[in-house]
Design a protein around this nucleic acid. Structure first.
Lengths: 67, 67
DNA sequence: TTCTAGTGTAATATATACATTACATCAGTG
DNA sequence: CACTGATGTAATGTATATATTACACTAGAA
């Protein structure tokens, strides 16, 4: 589950803790999502989008794997 | 968690069962997501996007609620 | 050097996404 | 009418997203 949360968060001038508070989760959850170790829920993805001012596609889109 | 999965699925000419099989979940899960009763994971959102040929923003974007 | 802010991550607990099984309704169609 | 495909949904079980607590490391500032 790779994504662009970390770069978008830094662009927005936020720390992990600030993003966590803005989105209503813990810092650990943000850290794990940035590291690609969590498969976040849609609700949290949207909250992160709102907090950093980006769209779902900008932060979370991944091209389909062609077998 | 309202979304546009149902209309996109119908546009794509798929039944709930076919979409479920294409995305690797059960028909019940698709039904509940279409009804807005589930908060799906990013991985499943992406699988649905691939199956119906739409983007995350097209299917799942919701404008931020301004308090 | 010491202190602090920012970050990574482990262990355990809790909430919830999703599966499984089952039964129901409705619209066509024979 | 009976039959089938498509859908809604309830009850219960399992997997995992997220919380909680805690400890570690690094970079920069005092």
């Amino acid at each position: 589950m790779m994504n662009h949360v970390k770069s978008a968060r830094i662009e927005a001038g936020l720390t992990q803790l600030q993003l966590a508070e803005n989105t209503g989760v813990t810092r650990q959850t943000i850290s794990l999502i940035e590291k690609g170790k969590y498969n976040p829920t849609l609700k949290l993805c949207l909250a992160i989008c709102y907090a950093v001012g980006k769209s779902l596609d900008e932060l979370f889109w991944i091209e389909e794997e062609k077998s």
